[in-house]
Design a binder for these strands. Structure first.
Length: 557
DNA sequence: GCGGATCAC
DNA sequence: TATGGTGATCCGC
């Protein structure tokens, strides 16, 4: 493992840009011995005439400048007295060491090449051919395809160039969800509080199970993997360690269907971390890796030797995160996977670039309708609206607005979004638009919105009738592309398969009181409508506002 | 609070 | 033949 990411790559004129083209193939499993130069060259050849390439080039240049600035600032720091920074860093290291919890057994389950494995299982004829699952970009590919340089995220046309006999399989998301549900089923008995992240990964805390049944973590995981294999036919990799960070790294340490246990002893952990490239740590992406590299940090051990510079150069948050990485610290509490914890709902859609206002408007309408559907599913409305426009030069612009009240209908969303889209287009008269996106945040339970209350008042029913006014109705419904794909909407809400793990640099987030459900016993009564309300101040005040304005409205009706 | 960025999958 | 979508968070202002 002497080869770190940075040093021994072939250097070419556009070397940093090339590196970005190699993408995850630089760090993922299945690419050992693959010619990374070939990947970069092929992608480069395919891309060099496109506007996308220009955009990437611009980004790369900006990042390079940032790195140069970092180097310069570090050089200046080196000339000054950094003793106080060093002392502070050591203090933080001591504190982190002190608070480190090594008592838990956390397991990371990684269904590597998940989509590909499922397909291969369902269709044995794929077993010995290189194939990729995906639509226009590769979502996953098997190991035979990886050997040729094919990787996730690659445009399929490019992948085919590198691997001419690549078979393409259309993704079947329902099937993947089904298999993931089976996997969850198998995990449940070892830790009902397991955490799912993404579509193909999960964490378990098996500490309790191990003590209660007097079994070693290693054996538990072996059985669990056997269970999963038996139930689903899927081979999974598992990492066992003291926290989720280390467990995740451990699982990537092993071949696709193996398991790896990192003993929870400080010395062993430190030795394990020592030579690890920082890029392999969750939370260190391509850009941070490059920035760190510019000041001489390639491995986790390097973090320590540069510790006196980190706070000044990267700020408190990142500084502390990096020290945690160096010490192998990480989260040990798992977060239950609940749909209701979602903080935003968004849709963005790429289409054939256009500058025709009517087409753009129609696309915006469709996006808004999909957001409406998503919010309906969550029974939420959102008070902050973010609209995003990406032009054909791949530059994107966004506008975020805090609205006077939460909205959820396609009509409302559309009306608030359109002005920004129009303004952006007017700003770029000679460009076409290729993507529109709409996101709502500051989600509140829909029962508390004014319109919902009003509707209740009018109909004396719990929920408003849908379809009453969906601004986009009559005209464009009969468009030739009438098949609106309801893509990723979930069927089972108990077992939501999509839940992101929070960035490791971030401390545990607080829970929005509005998002919890209350039992009637802890409710309070509203003095105006006399109905039960949640006991926390925020939502009660919100309710009061609604009630007051409603009684105003009634005066005039 | 806003806009741009980064990161993970 | 031509570079995706969702959700979360951070930084600087």
């Amino acid at each position: 493992m002497a080869s770190s990411t940075g040093s021994n790559q072939a250097i070419r004129p556009e070397s940093t840009l090339f590196k970005s083209f190699v993408g995850v193939a630089a760090i993922k499993k299945g690419y050992e011995g693959v010619d990374r130069d070939k990947i970069a060259r092929t992608v480069y050849e395919a891309a060099k005439v496109s506007l996308y390439f220009n955009h990437q080039q611009k980004r790369d240049q900006a990042l390079t400048e940032k790195c140069n600035a970092l180097m310069e600032r570090k050089r200046l720091l080196e000339e000054s007295d950094t003793t106080s920074q060093l002392v502070h860093a050591d203090k933080v290291v001591a504190r982190l060491k002190e608070n480190r919890d090594l008592s838990q057994s956390i397991v990371h389950i990684d269904c590597d090449a998940f989509y590909a494995s499922v397909e291969q299982n369902d269709r044995p004829e794929l077993k010995d051919v290189p194939f990729a699952v995906g639509d226009t970009v590769v979502a996953a590919c098997n190991y035979i395809a990886r050997k040729t340089g094919c990787r996730a995220g690659m445009v399929i046309a490019v992948a085919k160039k590198m691997c001419p006999n690549l078979t393409i399989v259309k993704p079947n998301h329902d099937r993947y969800r089904e298999v993931m549900a089976q996997i969850c089923n198998a995990m449940h008995k070892y830790d009902p509080g397991y955490e799912i992240c993404g579509t193909d990964e999960a964490y378990l805390n098996i500490t309790k199970y191990c003590t209660e049944c007097d079994i070693k973590p290693w054996d538990v995981v072996q059985t669990l993997r056997k269970d999963i294999r038996h139930e689903t036919g899927i081979a999974v990799a598992a990492g066992i360690a003291a926290n989720i960070q280390l467990a995740k790294i451990s699982s990537t340490f092993i071949k696709p269907d193996g398991q790896y246990q990192l003993p929870s002893e400080p010395d062993i952990i430190m030795a394990f971390i020592k030579d690890l490239p920082v890029r392999k740590v969750t939370g260190v992406g391509y850009t941070l890796d490059r920035q760190l590299g510019s000041i001489g940090i390639a491995t986790c051990e390097d973090i320590f030797s540069q510790r006196q510079f980190l706070r000044v150069l990267f700020g408190d948050r990142l500084f502390e995160f990096l020290l945690e990485v160096y010490l192998g610290c990480g989260r040990t509490e798992l977060q239950a996977t609940l749909e209701q914890q979602k903080k935003s709902a968004s849709i963005e859609r790429t289409f054939k670039e256009t500058s025709a206002p009517d087409i753009i408007e129609r696309n915006l309408r469709m996006v808004c309708e999909d957001v409406e559907a998503k919010l309906k599913e969550l029974n939420r409305a959102g008070q902050t609206l973010t609209v995003k426009v990406k032009m054909n030069d791949f530059e994107s612009y966004s506008k975020q607005t805090k609205l006077p009240k939460a909205i959820s209908s396609a009509r409302d969303i559309f009306q608030h979004s359109l002005p920004f889209v129009k303004a952006t287009l007017a700003d770029k008269p000679h460009q076409a638009c290729r993507l529109l996106g709409v996101r709502l945040t500051q989600l509140v339970s829909k029962d508390y919105t004014l319109s919902a209350a009003f509707e209740r008042m009018a109909h004396k029913s719990a929920y408003p009738k849908p379809d009453s006014l969906s601004g986009a109705k009559e005209e464009e419904r009969s468009s030739p592309t009438g098949k609106r794909k309801l893509g990723d909407d979930l069927e089972s809400r108990e077992l939501s398969p999509r839940k992101k793990i929070s960035n490791p640099a971030i401390k545990s987030p607080e829970i929005n009181p509005l998002e919890t459900s209350w039992c009637t016993s802890e409710m309070v009564r509203c003095p105006i409508c006399d109905q039960h309300q949640p006991p926390d101040n925020a939502s009660f005040n919100q309710h009061l506002d609604i009630c007051l304005s409603l009684s105003e409205i009634q005066k005039y009706s």
